[in-house]
Design a protein around this nucleic acid. Structure first.
Lengths: 200, 200
DNA sequence: GTCTATAGTAAGATAGAC
DNA sequence: GTCTATCTTACTATAGAC
């Protein structure tokens, strides 16, 4: 047994397995047995540590929502950066992070879709975005258009490829390698496109 | 009993219920009992008509994939229209159709994510898109950039709002009415943005 | 803390009456 | 064709030994 394996507590092994299985299959399709097997432990231990499937899911979900939106906050509220810089940071951060965890957006979006109240009950984040420096700067440039459009566009341009890749790849419209190349290109293209949309 | 109700066969009632429940909750979270109840019939009848949950799902899934991508084909292959016209048609068609069926994209994308081989086994549509008039016209305008980028952007700008609306609305970043207003605005904005991106 | 064994329940599917 | 009742399986969760 390597040092690394020995240091991971059973609790962390289960959480790690849960992260993997839940994000891959979603809550409903996940069986606690899958998680136990993935963690290399017995099913009873899962309930010993986390009481129930629901409680374990809750933990993972909160973490994943944080991963997906947490990275956004420091960038959009920063008053010291230009809109262009913000766009560059958003594109680079999202694409690099999601490339390591491509299933993240679809998981979060799907689970929130099935539990619309989940977010409102715990993440009071609306004002942070609405009053953010990003929104102000967009409003200054385009007082004639709802800034939410551009916020959505920025996120969509970054995130949509990851959500739709199974379709494009599955349909044979693109292959895995070309897709990876596209992603890298988008890191520099998205800021340029966003700038063009703001001027259009 | 109204005329309309009387004319709907039991088979159609079940299929209709299945469409509703499957797209709302996804395959795994759907119980055949939910569908039977929604259809106002007995559980046994579902198996009498469709043999199994899987077979019924298969039917709905094929239909929904058709709904989501079928509308795209006639537009992108049409050699008689300009790129600008194509963009206008894509935006208008998608937003109008999806407004009546907002859960469609997330359903299709999620289910394909969980069954990556599903598409490749039955929808041999790759060449239609790759050789489409849309792709050619984009290549002419921007031979320096992979046209797939713009195809993805067009779809993403139309579809992403529907996928992400539960998040935006759930987090309180936007309310339902403003969201509906945004959607209408996007029908004319998206073609403008796409044009701007192509020039950038 | 970790296991085996099992209770309890929910879900998909079918048998058989009408 | 449509129903009620039931079979069978698979899942979550717990009891209890070690």
């Amino acid at each position: 047994m390597t040092r690394k394996e020995k240091d991971i507590t059973t609790e962390e092994k289960i959480k790690g397995a849960a992260r993997k299985v839940f994000t891959q299959k979603g809550y409903a399709a996940t069986r606690t047995r899958d998680i136990a097997e993935e963690a290399g432990i017995n099913l009873a231990l899962l309930n010993y540590y986390f009481r129930s499937k629901e409680k374990l899911f809750e933990l993972v979900m909160a973490e994943k929502v944080g991963e997906l939106f947490g990275m956004l906050v420091p960038v959009v509220v920063d008053h010291s950066t230009t809109l262009k810089t913000k766009m560059e940071k958003i594109a680079a951060t999202y694409i690099d992070t999601l490339e390591k965890n491509p299933g993240l957006p679809l998981f979060v979006l799907s689970e929130i879709h099935r539990r619309p109240e989940w977010l409102s009950q715990r993440v009071p984040i609306a004002d942070i975005f609405k009053k953010s420096s990003f929104m102000q700067q967009v409003r200054e440039k385009r007082p004639d258009i709802d800034p939410m459009h551009f916020f959505m566009n920025a996120l969509g341009l970054c995130v949509f490829p990851f959500i739709s890749s199974p379709v494009f790849i599955g349909a044979g419209v693109i292959n895995r390698n070309d897709f990876k190349k596209l992603l890298q290109e988008r890191k520099s293209l998205i800021p340029v496109w966003m700038n063009a949309m703001l001027k259009a």
